[in-house]
């Protein structure tokens, strides 16, 4: 199964606004084994100059995943999700995600290519506040492995 290479540049409607909760940040930080006080304790985060607890950098994947799902599940793209693995990931921050933020994520297909039978999709997800302030851009390469490939 090959992906439709003509979809480069396609943007998807933004996912519904994601409201960043303190407890969700704590839950995520705990799940990655990170006890940095800036993620858990509002007073500690404020002492560092933040409005409230901030999120670990990779927390943005929660928000970008919602938007990028539209790409992965786009029937016009033809991606075999059962064989998908994560190839690359980058986050470029304007400021940390902070509890109380209401974030809007918009995904765009940045690049599509087929290498050694593997379908490779580069998505760029721009994450802003509902007021349009840029917070972080997440760029991901996901790979749908060719059948018969061992990893």
């Amino acid at each position: 199964m090959a992906i439709n290479l003509e979809l480069v540049g396609k943007s998807y409607p933004p996912a519904p606004a994601y409201e960043v909760g303190r407890e969700k940040i704590r839950e995520f930080a705990t799940a990655i084994g990170d006890d940095n006080p800036a993620y858990h304790d509002s007073a500690a985060a404020q002492a560092l100059g933040h409005r409230d607890v901030i999120a670990p950098a990779t927390f943005a994947v929660i928000v970008s995943f919602l938007a990028a799902s539209a790409v992965v599940n786009d029937p016009d793209l033809g991606l075999d999700y059962s064989r998908v693995v994560h190839g690359e990931q980058r986050f470029s921050y304007s400021r940390p995600i902070t509890a109380g933020d209401r974030l809007v994520a918009t995904a765009t297909i940045e690049n599509l290519r087929i290498a050694a039978g593997n379908d490779m999709v580069t998505t760029r997800t721009d994450i802003t506040t509902i007021d349009g302030e840029h917070v972080v851009t997440a760029t991901a390469v996901i790979v749908s492995r060719a059948a018969g490939d061992d990893a």
């Binding site: 950098a57 990931q89 980058r90």
Partner: peptide, 18 residues
């Protein structure tokens, strides 16, 4: 990196290839 820096808000960009 954030353990080393102290304030994780200092991190402005990170990227990896798996």
């Amino acid at each position: 990196v954030t353990n080393w820096v102290g304030d994780p808000g200092a991190l402005v960009d990170c990227g990896v290839r798996f």
